[in-house]
Amino acid sequence: MSGFVSIWKAAPTRADVGFFLRALLTRPLDIPGILRREAAKRRANLQAPPAEDALGLRALTESWEAALAAGLFDAPPGRGEALEISEIGEPLALLSALQSAAAVIWRGAAAQSPAFPPLSLEAARLGLPQHADEPEAAHAARRAWAAQAALSPALRARLLALAEAPIGPA
């Protein structure tokens, strides 16, 4: 029954069918092994689908991982102006703006956006003074995100420490 459910959830592609038919004609004795192998792959795929990058910020976490592993994680604050954010539209565009800002102020609902915690942690990594309308809620959101995001243990520890960086009232 579970095999039918698995096929219903993810139908084999034309290439899969072609491979199977060729194997059936040219090496029929391998068929049981092929079926077992494919079933195992399907189970693995269905149980652990690839992580969705719903925020479009996988680039940020992967860049953090590489920089931390090389010991080049920190960066000094930018020399631009204070950045006032009231809405997070495109997180990656905002990420670019953070790189040269001298401070960041999270206004209104911006700190409730799902993209707020990693962006605020990036601002903390850059050493930017931060302010928010509700500092305690902003801290809690950063801590929660750093605790549950898909990260290496070393990066998680570093981000949990960064999550405690001060956020003043806006």
């Binding site: 479009g56 680039a59 992967e62 860049s63 590489a66 920089a67 960066a75 495109e90 990420l95 790189q99």
Partner: peptide, 17 residues
């Protein structure tokens, strides 16, 4: 760098050794 799937350029800053 070539992380993720976004076709928009995004800027990151770290430091050099």
């Amino acid at each position: 760098s070539n992380y993720g799937a976004s076709p928009r350029p995004a800027l990151f800053r770290t430091r050099l050794a």
